[in-house]
């Protein structure tokens, strides 16, 4: 999947996780398989912005502003991160905005 394609997508946090910030680190556990994920600051920013209404490209732009990262690099890193979490069912990905009701399902 290419960057241009993925960046047009919307991402949302799955409801099948337990997540909490602890000592400045975001900790996420998949309640399906008890797999634990620790997010760094940039990844936490993506996670918190994954509201189903914001595109990945918009989120990457926010990262560029916040962390002084080159836009292409920010998008590539965000893409890799999203693909990884989506593979474990922790993030939902869609080419349409993801409604709150879908998140509850």
């Amino acid at each position: 999947m290419g960057v241009d394609h993925l960046s047009a997508l919307y991402i949302a946090r799955s409801r099948e996780v337990a997540a909490r910030v602890l000592g400045g680190e975001m900790m996420i556990m998949s309640v399906r398989d008890s797999r634990l994920f620790n997010l760094n600051q940039v990844a936490t920013m993506i996670w918190q912005a994954a509201d189903g209404a914001t595109t990945l490209e918009e989120i990457a732009q926010r990262i560029c502003v916040e962390y002084d990262v080159e836009p292409g690099q920010a998008l590539r890193d965000a893409e890799a991160f999203v693909q990884e979490l989506a593979r474990h069912g922790v993030l939902l990905v869609s080419d349409q905005p993801i409604q709150e009701r879908t998140l509850d399902d």
């Binding site: 099948e16 337990a18 909490r20 602890l22 900790m27 556990m29 309640v31 399906r32 008890s34």
Partner: peptide, 17 residues
């Protein structure tokens, strides 16, 4: 069980704080 996994996760994080 999703609810029990969620509960244990929260308990452990509570514990370490």
């Amino acid at each position: 069980d999703e609810e029990l996994v969620r509960a244990v996760f929260q308990t452990v994080l509570d514990f370490v704080t």
